[in-house]
């Protein structure tokens, strides 16, 4: 297993600038934004989506309700706080997706371009191990930093709210933290990313395949090839199976935080949404995706053995 330790460490070292610093910088930007917003407006809008009752997932909404002396029910409060958490998570998930996309595209391309592929192939690690280590890095190692920074942002915002909200109405610090959902949020993120790594396999593996195959313009190949094939499908058969499949596996539906679980669906007052996450394994979409993804990975490995410097 030392080979795997070496390969994964090497991937992390090469990509920590994107996978590690990306979320850290996002965290920093959010902190600065919140501080400026607080200084100027005295409040922060975290999520601009309206819920069923027309409330925004914002600290403003919390303060308004609190000032109206109308203590929100536990469930309603939890719902507001969920909105805030989800808003934060969505920002990070978007950043993660962009980083993962470009990192994967470069992983089997850049080293051929700078000729270091000749060095990587001169060490006793097989092409299969090399390609799989790159997939594992994006699927399950990169997300650790993103999860850590999402949690850091949660904690930061709850500290801010601890100073802002109570004392301006009926809401207490105890109320706020007991409904924070921080533990649930952490569990959701860990389990969600764990499953998402498999759910997104066909997407990740496609990007690795392109990265391994082409000698130029990996971005164009990765994006335009599926668009052209999908359009041909539409013209020829009048169906949209490919586009639907791509959209489906691009979605972050495995990660509960991102799918806006509403309290209405969960009578207990707090939805973890993990049921939905694991229910993916009961869908044919998951297994078809895994089969197609495995085929793409095989192709990426095969081409890795053939293609050297560009």
């Amino acid at each position: 297993m030392n080979v795997w330790k070496g390969l994964l460490t090497r991937e992390w070292l090469e990509h920590k600038g994107a996978l590690g610093w990306g979320p850290v910088i996002t965290f920093g930007v959010i902190v600065v934004f919140v501080m400026i917003s607080l200084a100027i407006a005295g409040t922060v809008e975290i999520n601009l989506d309206l819920d069923d009752e027309g409330h925004r997932g914002s600290i403003t909404a919390l303060i308004d309700e609190s000032l109206s002396e109308e203590i929100p029910t536990e469930a309603a409060l939890a719902n507001r706080l969920d909105k805030i958490r989800h808003g934060v998570a969505e920002i990070f998930l978007f950043v993660f997706f962009i980083i993962a996309f470009f990192t994967l595209l470069g992983m089997l391309f850049d080293d051929r371009k700078d000729r270091s592929v000749l060095f990587w192939k001169s060490v006793p690690a097989s092409d299969a191990e090399t390609v799989l280590s790159k997939y594992v890095t994006i699927a399950w190692i990169g997300p650790v930093a993103t999860i850590a920074m999402i949690m850091a942002t949660y904690v930061f915002l709850f500290v801010v709210m601890t100073f802002l909200v109570p004392g301006r109405g009926a809401l207490t610090v105890g109320n706020l933290w007991s409904n924070s959902g921080l533990v649930v949020g952490l569990v959701e993120l860990i389990a969600g990313f764990a499953v998402h790594g498999l759910w997104a396999l066909p997407i990740y593996a496609w990007l690795l395949l392109v990265s391994s195959a082409v000698t130029r313009a990996p971005f164009a190949w990765a994006v335009f090839m599926p668009i052209v094939i999908g359009m041909l499908e539409r013209i020829t058969f009048g169906t949209g199976v490919l586009f639907k499949g791509i959209g489906n596996h691009l979605s972050l539906k495995a990660i509960p935080t991102a799918i806006q679980v509403s309290v209405d669906e969960a009578p207990s007052g707090r939805a973890t949404g993990l049921g939905d996450t694991f229910a993916l394994f009961a869908t044919s979409d998951m297994w078809i995706g895994i089969v197609i993804g495995a085929a793409f990975l095989y192709g990426a490995i095969y081409l890795r053995t053939r293609n050297n410097e560009i």
Binding site: K5, R10, F119, V123
Partner: peptide, 29 residues
């Protein structure tokens, strides 16, 4: 590759890596 070594004309070592990390990598693999 456990029993063979290869040096090509200069510059195939990964440019982004630190020397110590490269040694760690070699020791692992």
């Amino acid at each position: 590759m456990r029993r063979t070594a290869y040096i090509a004309d200069t510059g195939i070592l990964p440019r982004w890596m630190r020397v110590a990390h490269l040694l760690d990598f070699m020791a692992d693999v």
